[in-house]
């Protein structure tokens, strides 16, 4: 992926196995978020291919990729600020009957029924993420950490097969972080595949296997926690390397 003259993600090639929590680490400006945006359809890669369940998805718009079961969260949370937590969750379920203008007129009972089902599901997910007590608050009134949880909640409302998490732990207080880690491993056990960008090394080393390391737009290495910890190139990338970016 190239922005003008800058190759933000260059020659990065990897596979993610199903039912893993794959970690993606690297210093700021390494190109991790850009990689996410390319996978999720925000950017069309200037070269290369992206396959999801054997199907090419590069070049598809984000909403189409969502419908394939691949959902992402944002590094800086993007809840719908004026809408309540509940509404944020209720927006998500794909292909709702009531999303069609006419169904609201001609099949109100079906819409209502589905709405009640989604409502129960949203309450359950909110409870699971410890958001039960703020369901009716507009998202703009939540703390940054809670907004990250809303993003995860939105992702869960889609029953996705894979979730891309962009720094779910950044700016989150330690007790909330522990909770997020718990939730991710629990969801992983339920069968969801994760690709996780994170700077918190404890979190990554405990949760993720394998771990991908990026630096300067390139894939530096791939391996388990042990391998990453002992690879001198990783340390080098974080400490030395080009004194380039903060992003």
């Amino acid at each position: 992926m190239r922005f003008g003259g800058l190759k933000a993600v260059d020659d990065v090639s990897f596979k993610i196995r199903e039912h893993t929590i794959t970690g993606l680490i690297g210093p700021n400006g390494a190109g991790k978020t850009t990689l996410f945006n390319s996978i999720a359809g925000v950017y069309t890669p200037t070269a290369g291919q992206i396959l999801f369940k054997g199907e090419r998805i590069d070049g598809l718009p984000p909403h189409r990729i969502f419908h394939k079961g691949l959902v992402r969260t944002f590094q800086i949370p993007r809840p719908f600020p004026e809408m309540t937590v509940l509404e944020n969750l209720l927006v998500v379920p794909p292909s709702q009957c009531g999303e069609s203008f006419w169904n609201n007129w001609f099949q109100p009972a079906r819409v209502r029924e589905e709405e009640e089902r989604n409502h129960d599901k949203a309450c359950e997910i909110a409870k699971f993420l410890n958001l039960g007590h703020v369901l009716d608050l507009p998202c703009k009134n939540l703390s940054g950490g809670q907004q990250k949880l809303v993003e995860i909640g939105r992702a869960l409302m889609a029953d996705p097969s894979m979730i891309l998490l962009d720094e779910p732990g950044a700016g989150v207080n330690p007790s909330l972080l522990a909770e997020i880690i718990d939730r991710i491993s629990e969801l992983h056990e339920r069968g969801i595949t994760f690709l996780l960008i994170e700077h918190n090394m404890d979190m990554v080393l405990n949760l993720c296997d394998p771990i991908l390391v990026m630096a300067n737009g390139r894939l530096l290495m791939e391996g388990d926690a042990q391998a990453v910890r002992s690879d001198p190139r990783v340390l080098d990338a974080y400490l030395g390397g080009e004194p380039e970016a903060t992003s």
Binding site: A40, V42, P61, P62, H63, F66, H67, V71, R72, F74, R78, P79, F80, P81, E82, M83, E87, N88, L90, V91, V92, P94, Q96, C97, G98, E99, S100, F101, N104, V111, E115, R154, M157, A158
Partner: peptide, 28 residues
């Protein structure tokens, strides 16, 4: 009133609030 308070209206509102986020949850 009925339609803006329906799931249809909710999607409308989400798109107005943040189109990028709305497309990330599947709404065009």
């Amino acid at each position: 009133e009925r339609i803006v308070h329906s799931p249809w209206g909710r999607v409308l509102m989400a798109i107005r609030e943040d189109e990028t986020a709305a497309s990330s949850v599947g709404k065009s």
